[in-house]
Amino acid sequence: GVTLFVALYDYEARTEDDLSFHKGEKFQILNSSEGDWWEARSLTTGETGYIPSNYVAPVDS
């Protein structure tokens, strides 16, 4: 299955590639091989962008 991640904090995008999000928003991670910045798709907005990996945690299934 796909592991979903949930935002622990609000984040405001600093570049066009970043994804702004709110605490509690859920994400599907598309690429986590880039280190501290993961490519993710928000399940709330459907938008794709980079998120700071230390702002999210796995959702307990």
Rank of each mutant, 00 (worst) to 15 (best):
L43T: 14
R41Y: 04
G1F: 12
Q28K: 10
K23G: 04
Y11H: 13
G46H: 11
F5W: 08
I51A: 01
L30I: 05
K26N: 13
Y55C: 11
T15S: 13
S33E: 13
L4N: 13
E16L: 12
G1S: 11
S32A: 07
E34A: 07
N54C: 10
K23R: 07
G49N: 01
Y55L: 12
E47H: 13
N54L: 06
N54Y: 05
L30M: 12
L8A: 12
V2H: 10
L30G: 06
L43K: 12
W37P: 11
I51W: 00
F27D: 00
Y11Q: 03
P52G: 06
Y55V: 08
E39V: 06
E25P: 01
V2C: 13
K26F: 04
G24A: 06
E47L: 10
A40W: 00
T48C: 04
A57K: 13
R14M: 12
K23N: 04
F27V: 07
V59F: 10
Y55R: 14
W37L: 14
E34K: 08
G46N: 15
A7K: 00
S42M: 11
G46T: 07
L43M: 10
S33R: 09
E34P: 08
T3S: 05
K26D: 03
P58G: 09
D18H: 11
G1Y: 03
Y11E: 01
K26I: 04
N54M: 04
V56H: 01
A40T: 02
L30S: 05
D18K: 14
R41K: 15
I51H: 00
E47R: 12
G1I: 15
Y9V: 08
K23Y: 03
T3I: 10
G1L: 03
K23S: 07
G24D: 11
Y9M: 15
P58Y: 03
Q28M: 10
L4K: 15
T45C: 04
E39S: 08
K26P: 03
F21S: 01
I51S: 00
W38E: 03
I29F: 03
T15N: 13
E39R: 08
T44P: 05
P58F: 03
V59W: 14
K26S: 06
S32T: 12
E47F: 08
A57E: 15
V2A: 09
S33V: 08
S20I: 01
V2F: 14
Y55S: 15
F21N: 00
D60F: 06
G49S: 01
Q28Y: 11
D17Y: 05
S33P: 12
K23M: 06
P58M: 08
